[in-house]
């Protein structure tokens, strides 16, 4: 095992948590991400293989699914035509991209995305009040599992609804983690006063 010590996107040894009245902002570092794009003419093979790997049918535009295989849980969300992001536990799947690439062979192009993103989980009754100050998404109408790409205070990323009106995941470009966190925290202060 190597001796390199990882840092969180916010630069800490441990993920950061910020608490507000009716809102929690939690930095998340224990998820692995890989994108999978089906190759031309291999769409069915790619989808079939992935179904077996993650235990769920791949979702359509704007959606995500959750699945589990052998006690390990997975999620997948649509990012572009014939392209999905696969989400898994980092501890069990640090080499998620390699594993997926091996299983999918020539049916898909797999790219490691784990460290391309910073992730903040937002939870609480005020979460929609927060998000409507930051992005143009109609967050109050977002259903369970809805996912959309958007810009939060000019920082591109994904918004993923895990419990309507209560829990959302924000994925932003990792290098902008501090700016994104600053925007989230300032806005949280703004709405909770």
């Amino acid at each position: 095992m190597h001796d390199l010590i990882p840092l969180s996107p916010l630069g800490g040894a441990a993920p950061q948590v910020d608490m507000f009245d009716g809102l929690q902002i939690r930095e998340v570092t224990d998820r692995a991400l890989a994108s999978v794009a089906a190759r031309l003419g291999h769409e069915a093979v790619c989808q079939g293989t992935l179904r077996a790997l993650i235990g769920a049918d791949l979702p359509g535009p704007g959606q995500s699914v959750e699945g589990s295989v052998q006690g390990l849980s997975y999620a997948a969300f649509w990012t572009a035509p014939e392209t999905w992001m696969i989400d898994a536990d980092h501890g069990a799947h640090e080499l998620l991209a390699q594993d997926l690439a091996q299983a999918l062979g020539a049916s898909a192009s797999v790219t490691e995305q784990t460290d391309g993103w910073c992730r903040f989980d937002l939870e609480g009754a005020r979460v929609c009040d927060l998000l409507e100050r930051l992005c143009a998404v109609d967050v109050r109408m977002m259903g369970q599992g809805g996912v959309t790409r958007t810009a939060l205070h000019h920082i591109g990323g994904y918004l993923w609804c895990q419990a309507p009106g209560r829990r959302f995941v924000v994925l932003g470009s990792r290098s902008s983690a501090r700016s994104l966190h600053h925007a989230l925290v300032e806005t949280a202060r703004s709405i909770t006063g």
Partner: peptide, 14 residues
């Protein structure tokens, strides 16, 4: 459109 090629930005990943 019929070339089999997929593009992903990985600037942030490495």
């Amino acid at each position: 459109p019929d070339l089999d090629v997929q593009l992903v930005s990985t600037t942030e990943s490495w």
